[in-house]
Design a protein around this nucleic acid. Structure first.
Lengths: 145, 145
DNA sequence: CTTGAAGCTATAGTTGCTAGAGACATTAGG
DNA sequence: CCTAATGTCTCTAGCAACTATAGCTTCAAG
């Protein structure tokens, strides 16, 4: 049995985050010691590692909740899990595309800015003039991070 | 003079967001009509367009605040603006690198998931087993979006 | 002159945590 | 065995950057 600190260390998750996950029902309520401290089993560690890994991959807590409830029913088809992963992949790809465009625009901004005055600054100029913008980068959804 | 709705439309920013920007001091307090409604000049539109464009490029509101205060002093060196843009570029590059890694991991997950049962699902399996993970993708900073 | 859209303020909710206060539990050293 | 240091407990509030709701007022068109 692990205390919350050891669990956090083992899974790479901070202690308050673990308590937060319990609070929102992503982790079951932990067993308690005689002194009311949380105690965790190896299974709990696996579940937390799963969550952490999925978070690292950019899945939202909602998506993770779905994935966890799927993994509790190992006899069903994995189509639903597949769908969640595919949606996540699509989102990652769209973010990649946007970021690539941003990168080149930022590079263009930075190149010419070696010591001039603000009045001629490319950075300020580009930001101020929407028409110089290559495309309409919009933020269609909040980033799940 | 534009009403807040027209301004929002022209700049591509939602009305409550404009009021929020005013509240946090990113936009100056707007003039008011006799009936207490906000009125905006062309200059205000430019400022808002600047903000929106910078947000699209992923700058935080704090960075934008700095950029705006710089652009109010056109005789100073643009080194500071340059530095802000370079920092932003570095962050975009690091996010790009992370996302690229995530994408290939997600692709690997999704490839083999065509109709099996949850018990054999690659998605669940990969998420559950940290050791299959190519590298340590951590989220060092919150994404500014 | 009426009606419906657009505006106003103020407050609360969102996501995914993080930080703080003040009290109790556990553990290592003397 | 006692003490000090660390760890844990609960609870609340805060962060970014908005978004949504409620209940009101004002404006513009017909």
């Amino acid at each position: 049995m692990l205390t919350i600190g050891k669990l956090g260390e083992a899974a790479g998750v901070k202690v308050p985050t673990i308590r937060y996950y319990e609070q929102i029902g992503l982790l079951p309520e932990a067993e308690r010691s005689s002194g009311n401290q949380r105690l965790y089993s190896r299974k709990a560690l696996e579940r937390l590692a799963f969550i952490r890994h999925a978070r690292d991959l950019g899945f939202s807590l909602e998506a993770i909740r779905d994935l966890l409830s799927l993994s509790d029913k190992p006899d069903q088809s994995c189509a639903a899990a597949d769908a969640i992963a595919k949606a996540q992949l699509a989102e990652v790809e769209s973010r990649l595309a946007r970021l690539t465009a941003l990168k080149s625009e930022l590079e263009r901004m930075v190149v010419q800015c070696a010591g001039g005055k603000i009045a001629d600054c490319r950075v300020i100029e580009v930001l101020g003039d929407h028409s110089l913008c290559s495309a309409d980068h919009r933020h269609p959804e909040p980033e799940p991070n």
